[in-house]
Design a binder for these strands. Structure first.
Length: 277
DNA sequence: ATATATCCCTGCGCGC
DNA sequence: TGCGCGCAGGGATATA
């Protein structure tokens, strides 16, 4: 599930529980996720205090009090769960367990194991191979229509595919690419290089608003303490077009229904009438 | 440079 | 009920 808004929601939840707290115990239940875990991974976390929990693109960054950073990516199926220590037995795909000094347990569960974790010196974070090439954060003010237009210029690939390229803009995934293009009324098939000027401004506005609304939805569900699972980042969010092929377009209603197509091997949803260009 | 394919891995829902 | 199939919100890598 995790795109930028979901990762941001997980970050908020982890921040509340981990920042300022010491890790009384850390365990890795297998030696690898998508990539091998670093040497002595659990030992190097044990006893450390978490200084901050931040995010870059879809990566979580847990800064530790010894100058190292725990870098985590949730992949497709990664989840973080918070529970009182000893409350829940470990499950099938629980891979990393962090116990805080004040008796809480953060569990990383990832059935498909496309997620990853690494330990990186804070001083070398920007140079990390997974972070080095990332494009701008879409919610920052520096991400403007001119910036996106410049990044897209000369590219003949379809705009939907380009939005998934983390080097151009970081954090957009398959769902919000469709949602943002629908919001901006731009065809997912439009050549990326054709998006400039006012359309680039409009697309940037849509990206920001779609992501911000999703974060807001996540934040409101996070404040609901009744989440029985303790799982972070999952919230009921109604998508406008994603996964709704065959249903009436919510903008032009009777005129057309939402279509599904495959671009770069991944599903795209759009309205052929509202997103004609 | 860019487009497509393939792989990593498991779970789920669907049609038969 | 069981089984095979396609599909899944990510991303690196190889191949044309």
């Amino acid at each position: 599930m995790p795109e930028l808004p979901e990762v941001e929601t997980v970050r908020t939840g982890l921040d509340a529980v981990l920042t300022g707290r010491r890790l009384a115990a850390a365990r890795a239940l297998r030696p690898n996720l998508r990539l091998p875990l670093p040497e002595r991974f659990a030992e190097r976390l044990t006893g450390r205090r978490v200084v901050s929990v931040t995010r870059r693109a879809k990566y979580l960054l847990l800064a530790l009090d010894d100058g190292w950073v725990l870098l985590a990516h949730l992949g497709m199926s990664g989840r973080m769960t918070i529970a009182p220590l000893g409350d829940v037995p470990l499950g099938r795909h629980d891979h990393v367990v962090l116990d805080t000094e004040d008796g809480r347990r953060v569990t990383f569960n990832d059935a498909r194991r496309f997620g990853l974790m690494d330990l990186v010196p804070a001083s070398g974070l920007a140079a990390h191979p997974l972070l080095r090439g990332l494009g701008p954060e879409p919610l920052e003010d520096a991400f403007t229509g001119a910036v996106l237009g410049g990044a897209l210029s000369g590219r003949r690939t379809a705009i939907k595919v380009a939005l998934l390229d983390q080097r151009l803009v970081a954090g957009i995934g398959n769902i919000y690419a469709s949602e943002a293009l629908f919001d901006a009324a731009i065809s997912p098939l439009c050549p990326a290089g054709d998006i400039g000027g006012l359309r680039a401004e409009r697309l940037v506005g849509s990206i920001k608003s779609v992501l911000a609304r999703a974060i807001a939805a996540g934040g409101s569900s996070l404040r609901d303490h009744r989440q029985p699972s303790g799982e972070l980042g999952y919230f009921q969010h109604a998508f406008t077009v994603y996964g709704r092929d065959g249903r009436e377009c919510p903008r032009c209603h009777g005129q057309a229904s939402v279509l599904r197509l495959v671009q770069g091997g991944r599903a795209t949803y759009y309205c052929p009438v509202c997103q004609a260009g």
